[in-house]
Design a binder for these strands. Structure first.
Lengths: 107, 107
DNA sequence: ATGATGTGTAACCCTTAGGTTACTCAAATA
DNA sequence: TATTTGAGTAACCTAAGGGTTACACATCAT
């Protein structure tokens, strides 16, 4: 199986995003997570694996339980990519501003 | 066909992200976009449709051509969701700070 | 009017995604 | 030691994703 470590891919599934929302309150074991969703535990296990590989969560073993918590890394990667576009919006606003200035001048 | 208007889903495909990167420089027609990728024009057409439905791009018809440009809306939706987690990191940092303060006190 | 050009869409194919059940195994508990 | 509990994985199924080619159609150019 090819492991997909792309956080964008990991975030594409609404269920996985819901898991992350849940983890924003507190770290949770696999079973606890599964208890809050309508899908089976193995399905949750798969989702958790994908989130982990994408760097969106950390997993800490405690006996036979595995506790999941949010990991900043994956989030940063996505944020960084999105921030790349900021200069585009800035340019666009600047153009609008220039246009307005021009109009004032011609009055 | 069920239309998926989820920007997270739209961003999951690396090819679509590449299209967005391309559009950050300038607005482009479908054919121009297709010329920059190894996949067929109909494939590009599909990707563009998905990006459009997700609110990530705007499409402006000009004769028989369709010009694509970035749209802030879809990006904002994603950013907003990501920002939700900021308070989690803040809390985590605060806890670290508290821990450090406690250690200083006991010295 | 004719032909070239830009684009959307339908039909199809193969791969990936996401779910299930059944199984295994290690850790906790009686 | 025997049993329960938490979790990973394999095998399988169906649906969705992403690609292709072939076609239709409107717009521009001749």
């Amino acid at each position: 199986m090819r492991t997909n470590t792309d956080p964008f891919h990991a975030l594409a599934d609404p269920g996985r995003r819901a898991i992350l929302m849940m983890l924003s309150r507190d770290k949770q074991s696999i079973n606890t997570i599964a208890g809050n969703f309508d899908i089976s535990r193995p399905a949750i296990s798969k989702h958790v694996k994908i989130l982990h590989e994408a760097g969106l969560i950390l997993i800490k073993d405690s006996g036979r339980e595995r506790y999941c918590e949010l990991n900043l890394d994956g989030f940063e990667e996505v944020k960084k990519w999105l921030n790349f576009f900021d200069k585009f919006w800035k340019t666009k606003l600047q153009n609008l501003e220039d246009l307005l200035n021009q109009q004032y001048k011609s009055e």
